[in-house]
Nucleic acid binder design. Sequence first.
RNA 1: CGGGGCGUAGCUCAGUCUGGUAGAGCACAGCGUUUGGGACGCUGGGGCCGGAGGUUCAAAUCCUCUCGCCCCGACCA
Length: 446
Amino acid sequence: MRLAHSLVPTLKETPAEAQIASHRLMLRSGMIRQTSAGIYAWLPSGWRVLQKITRIVREEQDASGSQEILMPTIQSADLWRASGRYDAYGPEMLRIRDRHDREMLYGPTNEEMITDIFRQSVKSYRELPQMLYHIQWKFRDEVRPRFGVMRGREFLMKDGYSFDLSYEDAVVSYRRMMLAYMRSFQRMGLHAIPMQAESGPIGGNLSHEFIILAPTGESAVYYDAAFEEQDWLKSAFDYANPQDLESFFTQITTPYAATDEKHDAADPRWAGLAAERRREGRGIEVGHIFYFGKKYSEPMGLSIAGPDGKPLTPFMGSYGIGVSRLVGAIIEASHDDAGIIWPDSVAPWAAAILNLKQGDAACDAMCEAAYKALGAEALYDDRPERAGVKFADADLSGHPWQIVVGPRGAAAGRVELKRRASGERVELSLEDALAHIREGGLARAG
RNA sequence: CGGGGCGUAGCUCAGUCUGGUAGAGCACAGCGUUUGGGACGCUGGGGCCGGAGGUUCAAAUCCUCUCGCCCCGACCA
């Protein structure tokens, strides 16, 4: 994208309302603009990040065997009366009426709807198990939206739902999602740790929050250093193999990990842990999965024929990832005083091309060549601005690579390549710079 | 939902207490000088002071109502 005629309104000063780093940086780098309390418009760079995160989530969901669908944002109140949640949900649910005075609502989640859709079409035990997900905007009328997209009223969520014939099968589905989540977060450059959450309505231990580590996180977390050594992208667990999933689950739930609410210093896994293996940090919740059995399938009459011809009620679970929240969470986990430091996989553009002297024939030609070579993964700063402005904006926006083209270097056929994360700068030919980017950021960004 | 605060130019804010006809810096436009880490000078454009009512000769300023937004706390992807 050429910056001169693009809507990337960077700000030198911080808008008064932004308190936390990610909110400040998202506003300053021109990713978002607020339109109402807790509701944001996504501008080109922000939207690109959101799409990259979405794509990673989608790829990992698909790989795990979950099917993508898309359910509407507007739902009928009747559906929620069937599960008994219409009255229970409270003022967080945005309730609206259509022209015929029918009661509708903007979906805060989709358990009822997916159960309804499923029961309409699935009639036999032979069709189970199944896992479905969609990535759709949700609305929860939070009492107090804050922290920008980290806690908005309107937010993008991946919510998935599993349908199984038995508790044992549901456990397999649960573990499968857990693995998909760990892989997804790791691909985004995040250290995520599943922590046991409040038991669901059915009890048991099948409810986990996924906390990513960030120094500015909302809650304190305690965990075993073992989590820092795990690499789920290199692991060879097979989604189709329940034994694999069990050993994965054991591996990830055995080391100690707890939020401050559930932290138990007397737990032998913590008390017995060597001091240098104990980690205390802060975290942000970016996902939550739980098993809830027949909580919805039963009251909503989801019933299928079992092997003996008798009706059978499936066991369900649901699995959420806060996709738009992740944008903020990643920034919280990865920024410095100058601005954002995007992990390669979610950066809006792999590289920024900084033309330090717009109008200089050599600079222009070299920048155009770089832009042509990188294509859609490049942001070409072709604004008639001074060098300092371009440097500052590039650092603020956090592009993993910066190709700096100045008159002195351009005349000699050289550019400067800067790595945002390390600050490292090298002077080399354009061809070599492009090769570096392709090997590193671009290859991974796809 | 309890507590606190703020709405004045695109942004950050002063002016409000003590009414007298709207300001600064940045941003934007033009010109000139500059030109590898947010340049400088000159000139210029831009605000019915969130909205409605009231008090007054006169309201950004005082009073009433209203809308919006933010912060702290209890709750959530």
